[in-house]
Design a protein around this nucleic acid. Structure first.
Length: 132
DNA sequence: AGTATGACTCATT
DNA sequence: AAATGAGCCATAC
């Protein structure tokens, strides 16, 4: 797969307030993030930074988080639970409904989550820059 | 229009 | 080794 041609940094002036995938969807940074996240294999996880780096360091990891926040409303569902911070901690669990859902989903995929942190994180880490 | 905030990271103290 | 500050860039107020 390895499309994701590195968006030319659509900064500032670009309209899109929460790019909802309603068909007219112009390719946005968010779309790109979702494309990558959807390709995370079952039972694997990655980090915001890894995605941001894959799309170009120019876009900070914070925006990836925003993309996840918006991902709850888009059609092709995005496995946002497979995205954690670089420590393997479920920093975004508070944004799930209910918050325990994130950990449950991960455990259902065979991962071990202890104290909001994925055990053997490095083993299950999936780096788009490498795998894609 | 300017300030504050965030599902982050990295460098420095 | 833990805490702090600085970059990051789109939203919210």
């Amino acid at each position: 797969m390895k499309k994701v041609p590195r968006p030319p940094k659509q900064t500032g002036t670009t309209p899109r307030s929460i790019p909802v995938n309603d068909g007219s969807a112009q390719y946005s940074f968010f779309q790109n993030v979702w494309d990558v996240v959807r390709q995370i294999p079952f039972g694997r996880v990655t980090s915001y930074g890894a995605i941001a780096r894959y799309l170009g360091t120019g876009s900070s990891a914070r925006m990836v988080g925003w993309a996840m926040n918006a991902s709850f409303n888009i059609s092709p569902k995005v496995p946002a639970h497979r995205v954690v911070n670089r420590n393997g901690m479920l920093s975004g669990k508070a944004h799930f409904t209910p918050p325990e859902l994130m950990q449950e989903l991960l455990e259902k995929e065979g991962l071990i989550v202890k104290d909001e942190t994925i055990q053997e994180f490095e083993t299950h880490f999936w780096d788009p820059a490498v795998e894609l």
